[in-house]
């Protein structure tokens, strides 16, 4: 089929937007491994900046990973049961609870963080602990786990499957572990990728919640952007991309897989 002018205009515009999104990423990646950004690529490639950043900021990466995994564990543990209850109950109360649980997404992180500091900033050593940041991340990420699992549960004939399992003699733990969980694995996977990605990149809350002892990756990045030379900032950003891009790609893969299975 011959393509009309509409196709080429559309393609051109789409390519332009892709360039807008991707070129700065490439520029940043290249700058992170360039010996001297002012001179340009001719100055040669180097891992010097990466090594230097890791020496100074490696701790932020490890802390962010620790917080992300802890956030994941907590959201899995409390999010999946909550999604299950919300999927099984159709009443007004259940809808109100659902509404409440997803509310933290709609409120700017800086407001939630300020509230957390006001409420718990003076409680023991909590303020200086990474658990303080964890609390914020859990509140913010829980809605994503909840929605992701809930969407899959609602697409299933959950009530029918559970009744069938009961008719076969299955107790509640047997049917929850043997029938419900295996059938929401897609939603759990998508939710988990989202939670880890969001927690690794969370800045709006964490900037207020962190202390010098609990500096996370994005907070370190913001510091680097204002204080360090471009090559270092870019190398730091590169480390972040190395963590986050595989997660985002996995998320795209999970979404397309879910779409295929849904058909």
């Amino acid at each position: 089929m011959r393509r009309g002018i509409g196709f080429w205009t559309g393609l051109g515009f789409t390519l332009l937007i892709s360039a807008f999104l991707i070129l700065p990423v490439l520029a940043s990646v290249i700058a992170g491994v360039t010996a001297n950004q002012f001179v340009g690529l001719s100055s040669g490639l180097t891992t010097r900046w990466l090594v230097e950043v890791w020496a100074n900021y490696g701790g932020t990466v490890l802390l962010s990973l620790r917080i992300a995994l802890a956030t994941l564990a907590v959201t899995l543990l409390i999010g999946i049961p909550a999604a299950y209850v919300l999927a099984r109950h159709a009443g007004v109360t259940a809808r109100l609870v659902e509404e409440a649980l997803v509310m933290p997404v709609a409120v700017p992180g800086i407001a939630t963080a300020l509230g957390l500091i006001l409420a718990y900033g003076a409680v023991g050593d909590l303020r200086a602990s990474w658990l303080f940041i964890l609390a914020g991340h859990v509140v913010f990420c829980l809605p994503f786990m909840l929605r992701s699992v809930l969407a899959v549960l609602l697409a299933l004939d959950l009530k029918g499957l559970e009744e069938a399992a009961r008719a076969c003699g299955a107790s509640w733990p047997q049917r929850f572990l043997g029938v419900v969980l295996p059938n929401v694995s897609g939603g759990v996977l998508a939710g988990s990728l989202m939670v880890v990605t969001l927690s690794l990149g969370e800045f709006n809350m964490t900037l207020l919640l962190h202390t010098p002892f609990t500096r996370t990756l994005p907070v370190g990045l913001a510091d680097a952007y204002t204080a360090l030379r471009t090559e270092m900032a870019s190398a730091y950003t590169l480390i972040f991309f190395v963590l986050i891009v595989p997660l985002l790609s996995a998320m795209q893969w999970a979404a397309s897989r879910a779409e295929r299975l849904g058909r």
Partner: peptide, 15 residues
């Protein structure tokens, strides 16, 4: 689950 009945559902509800 403790009545020991067998049930066939309209939607089959196969796992």
């Amino acid at each position: 689950e403790r009545r020991h009945v067998g049930m066939v559902f309209q939607s089959y509800a196969l796992f």
